[in-house]
Amino acid sequence: PDDLEKRARELLKRGKNPDEIREYLRNAGYDQSQAEEALKRAL
């Protein structure tokens, strides 16, 4: 898994919901489609 996916998994483990994770990834400078893909793979 790429770093983005790892980060998404990490956040899920900490109890973040998908919307929070999307926002976090966007704020971290990733584009929307990258964030969506990583989140899908992590779920």
Rank of each mutant, 00 (worst) to 15 (best):
P1K: 11
P1T: 13
P1A: 13
P1D: 13
P1E: 12
P1F: 13
P1Y: 13
P1W: 14
P1C: 08
D2T: 11
D2C: 15
D2F: 12
D2K: 09
D2L: 11
D2I: 11
D2V: 11
D3W: 13
D3L: 10
D3H: 10
D3P: 08
D3Q: 10
D3I: 09
D3E: 13
D3R: 06
D3N: 09
D3Y: 13
L4M: 08
L4D: 02
L4Y: 05
L4T: 05
L4N: 02
L4G: 07
L4H: 04
L4W: 05
L4R: 03
E5Q: 08
E5I: 15
E5C: 10
E5P: 05
E5F: 15
E5S: 08
E5H: 12
E5D: 11
E5R: 05
E5T: 13
E5N: 08
E5L: 15
E5W: 15
K6F: 12
K6R: 13
K6M: 13
K6T: 12
K6N: 11
K6Q: 14
K6A: 14
K6I: 12
K6D: 11
K6H: 12
R7Q: 14
R7Y: 15
R7G: 04
R7E: 13
R7V: 15
A8P: 01
A8E: 00
A8W: 03
A8L: 15
A8D: 00
A8S: 03
A8K: 00
A8G: 01
A8F: 05
A8M: 10
A8T: 10
R9F: 08
R9M: 10
R9D: 04
R9S: 08
R9A: 10
R9T: 08
R9G: 06
R9H: 08
R9W: 09
R9L: 13
R9P: 00
E10L: 07
E10I: 06
E10V: 05
E10C: 08
E10S: 05
E10R: 05
E10F: 05
E10K: 04
E10P: 00
E10T: 05
E10W: 09
E10M: 07
E10H: 05
L11F: 05
L11T: 00
L11Q: 04
L11Y: 05
L11I: 02
L11W: 11
L11M: 14
L11G: 02
L12V: 06
L12M: 05
L12R: 03
L12P: 00
L12F: 06
L12C: 03
L12I: 08
L12N: 02
K13F: 06
K13T: 06
K13H: 08
K13M: 11
K13P: 00
K13Q: 11
K13W: 07
K13N: 11
K13Y: 07
K13V: 07
R14W: 11
R14I: 14
R14Q: 15
R14S: 15
R14N: 14
R14E: 15
R14Y: 10
R14F: 10
R14D: 14
G15A: 02
G15F: 03
G15L: 03
G15S: 02
G15W: 02
G15I: 02
G15M: 03
G15Q: 02
G15V: 01
G15E: 01
K16C: 07
K16A: 13
K16E: 05
K16P: 00
K16W: 15
K16S: 08
K16G: 04
K16M: 15
K16Y: 15
K16T: 06
K16I: 10
K16V: 12
K16F: 15
K16H: 14
N17F: 06
N17T: 15
N17R: 11
N17M: 09
N17Q: 11
N17H: 14
N17W: 05
N17I: 05
N17E: 08
N17A: 11
N17D: 10
N17Y: 06
N17P: 07
P18K: 06
P18H: 09
P18N: 05
P18L: 11
P18T: 06
P18M: 08
P18F: 09
P18E: 09
D19H: 09
D19M: 08
D19T: 10
D19R: 07
D19S: 09
D19P: 03
D19A: 09
D19N: 10
D19V: 06
D19K: 08
D19W: 09
D19I: 07
E20N: 03
E20M: 06
E20R: 03
E20C: 06
E20T: 04
E20L: 04
E20K: 03
I21V: 13
I21P: 00
I21K: 00
I21F: 04
I21W: 01
I21N: 00
I21M: 01
I21E: 00
I21D: 00
R22K: 09
R22F: 12
R22Y: 14
R22W: 07
R22V: 15
R22H: 05
R22A: 08
R22E: 04
R22N: 04
R22G: 03
R22I: 15
E23P: 00
E23W: 07
E23Y: 05
E23V: 08
E23N: 07
E23K: 06
E23H: 07
E23I: 09
E23A: 10
E23G: 05
Y24A: 12
Y24P: 00
Y24R: 03
Y24T: 09
Y24H: 10
Y24F: 14
Y24I: 15
Y24L: 14
L25G: 00
L25D: 00
L25N: 00
L25A: 02
L25Y: 04
L25S: 00
L25C: 01
L25H: 01
L25W: 05
L25T: 00
L25Q: 00
L25V: 01
R26H: 09
R26K: 13
R26N: 06
R26F: 10
R26Y: 10
N27H: 10
N27C: 05
N27W: 09
N27Q: 14
N27I: 12
N27V: 11
N27R: 13
N27Y: 07
N27F: 09
A28F: 08
A28V: 07
A28I: 09
A28Y: 07
A28S: 08
A28N: 09
A28C: 10
A28T: 04
A28L: 15
G29D: 01
G29L: 02
G29T: 02
G29Y: 02
G29W: 01
G29P: 01
G29R: 02
G29K: 02
G29N: 03
Y30T: 03
Y30R: 01
Y30S: 03
Y30I: 09
Y30V: 10
Y30W: 09
Y30A: 13
Y30L: 10
Y30M: 08
Y30N: 02
Y30E: 03
Y30K: 02
D31L: 08
D31E: 11
D31I: 05
D31P: 12
D31R: 04
D31T: 15
D31Y: 03
Q32K: 10
Q32P: 14
Q32L: 12
Q32T: 12
Q32M: 14
Q32W: 13
Q32R: 11
Q32D: 14
Q32S: 13
Q32E: 14
S33G: 13
S33I: 14
S33H: 14
S33P: 08
S33D: 14
S33W: 14
S33Q: 14
S33V: 14
S33A: 14
S33F: 14
S33M: 14
Q34S: 09
Q34A: 13
Q34R: 10
Q34K: 09
Q34F: 06
Q34L: 13
Q34E: 14
Q34T: 11
A35Y: 12
A35S: 08
A35L: 13
A35P: 00
A35W: 06
A35E: 01
A35I: 15
A35M: 08
A35H: 01
E36T: 05
E36P: 00
E36Q: 05
E36S: 04
E36V: 04
E36H: 04
E36C: 03
E36W: 04
E37G: 05
E37V: 07
E37F: 04
E37M: 09
E37D: 11
E37Y: 06
E37I: 08
E37C: 08
E37K: 07
A38M: 06
A38W: 09
A38H: 01
A38N: 01
A38D: 01
A38E: 02
A38L: 07
A38Q: 01
A38G: 04
A38R: 01
L39Y: 03
L39T: 03
L39D: 00
L39S: 01
L39F: 02
L39K: 00
K40Y: 13
K40D: 10
K40P: 00
K40F: 12
K40W: 14
K40A: 14
R41P: 01
R41M: 09
R41N: 09
R41W: 08
R41H: 09
A42D: 01
A42I: 15
A42F: 08
A42H: 02
A42E: 02
A42S: 03
A42R: 00
A42M: 11
A42L: 14
A42G: 03
A42T: 04
A42W: 06
A42C: 05
L43D: 03
L43P: 01
L43F: 07
L43I: 09
L43H: 04
L43N: 04
L43A: 06
